[in-house]
Amino acid sequence: MPKITFIQQNGEKVVVEDAVGTLMEIATDNDVEGITGDCGGVCSCSTCHVYVTHDWQDRIGSADEIEMDTLDFNEHKKPNSRLCCQIELTDELDGLIVEVAPEE
């Protein structure tokens, strides 16, 4: 089961062991600051915005068009931006580190 690390805006880390579900669900279940997941994971609200750290970008992949468009015009959007409700956890993601993006 994967272990996931969220780096919050305040620099503090939240580490979750044995994570299952989407990255957004894990973040909200563990009160990760800055991820509220308002729309419940349908790619509508962008309150689950994270940056994927460099080493993980290939394995995670980039956002599809719908996800990209939801992030469009977001002032904090970067090339490694993802809406983490769209990332389903698998064993391959063990050790994943993501950084929580600032609120809009």
Binding site: G41, C43, S44
Partner: peptide
């Protein structure tokens, strides 16, 4: 079960 569903019923931005 529509997902993704990037609606803007609550506006945007």
């Amino acid at each position: 079960d529509r997902k993704p569903n990037p609606h803007i019923a609550f506006g945007f931005g």
